[in-house]
Amino acid sequence: MAHEPAEHFENLAQQEHASHLGMWLFLTSEVLLFGALFGLYTGYRLEYQQDFSLAVHHNNIAIGTINTAILVTSSFSAAWAVHSARRGSRRGILVSLGITLLLGLVFLVLKGIEYKEHFDAGIFPGALYRSEELPSHGANLFFTLYFFLTGLHALHVIGGMSALAVLALLGARGRHTPERHTSLELGVLYWHLVDVIWIFVWPLMYLQK
């Protein structure tokens, strides 16, 4: 099938470049959103160092670490989907995206298990917080930020999975060809951003002393 650029582009290369640049600008807005939260974390942590240290130890480091390995692996499988599209392997695209979706689902299930552990211990965000083990205001702030950051991140995981599921359907119809698979590249870029954000959430929420 011949591909034609939209009329305001000189050629397909220019159109694809514009798509990539537009996607990166969108990713920048996402980075600013999470950057503000990381900034807030920095400020509160400096103010409540002892409380934050105690609160971090309450998080399940095993689940946090396994989820980190899961997300970096899902980035690899997502990248492999683009690699498969470049080689013209429809099966490769579908298997790679299928693995990515499965890993995203496992990540969410583990996050849900972790949330349940928190709820059972009376750890809720904001005014609902009623932990007897960690009653300090600083711990309350830490977990409010924790729920906001990881909850927002989980919404991004769900958004990314939805986009990848649509791209998998398009892939099954043969829409990602070696010559033209921009939509797949852009969807996968978004998934990588979800991974990069978690790469920073993990040390801040699980590894600090």
Binding site: V31, G35, F38, G39, L40
Partner: peptide
């Protein structure tokens, strides 16, 4: 941007 926000705060 992230460095600026974090260092500023």
């Amino acid at each position: 941007w992230v460095a600026l926000i974090s260092v500023g705060i």
